[in-house]
Simulated assay, not measured.
Amino acid sequence: MPRVLLAVLGLILLAGCSPGPVRVAVPSPGPEVATACGPLMEALPAKVLDGERRDTEPVSPFTAAYGDPPIEVTCGVSAPAGMAQAQSQCFEVNGVGWFAKEAENGIVFTTIGRAVYLEVAVPSEYAPEANALTDVSDAVHRFNKLVFPCT
């Protein structure tokens, strides 16, 4: 009997340590962008920077999260303030152009020169934050059509 009690207590403790769903703002893209985001989001990896994929709240096909603190990925967002398309400074990671903007607790990266905007918000605890882009760039390269190159 004591072994069963210890096993139950162990499960309760493990369940209490699991991070819950991540609250992520859900964009409202038009039909064409929403259609393009589907395969892209499905192609995202199971892990980003060794962080497991987590549930998001509300549940949406446009959002994903990884690790704790969460790295948030959102497809179908608007262009961020300060990004002026081809004139904005960008840098490439595995053939994908990114625009970077400092946020309150990290950096928000947005694809640049692609058919749809994909945003990756990386907390400063993961510095250098751009390393997270390596894990998602393959999906972006395959499922987010290049419109103009990063310059």
Rank of each mutant, 00 (worst) to 15 (best):
V33T: 13
T35L: 12
A36M: 14
A36T: 09
A36I: 02
A36R: 14
C37Q: 00
C37N: 00
G38R: 15
G38L: 15
P39W: 00
P39H: 03
L40S: 00
M41H: 00
E42K: 13
A43K: 03
P45H: 01
P45W: 06
V48W: 05
V48C: 10
L49T: 04
L49V: 13
D50Q: 09
D50M: 10
E52P: 04
R53H: 02
T56Y: 03
P58W: 05
P58N: 08
V59S: 14
S60F: 02
S60E: 03
P61E: 08
P61T: 01
P61Q: 10
F62K: 00
T63R: 00
T63L: 02
A64L: 05
G67M: 07
D68M: 07
D68A: 12
P69L: 06
P69Q: 02
E72N: 11
E72F: 00
V73W: 08
C75K: 01
V77P: 01
V77D: 06
P80K: 03
P80T: 06
P80R: 02
P80F: 02
G82F: 05
G82A: 07
A84V: 10
Q85C: 12
Q85M: 15
A86Y: 11
A86T: 15
Q87K: 12
S88F: 07
S88C: 06
F91M: 12
F91N: 04
V93I: 14
N94G: 06
G95F: 14
G97H: 08
W98Y: 13
F99S: 09
A100Y: 03
K101S: 10
N105D: 15
N105K: 11
G106D: 05
I107E: 07
I107H: 06
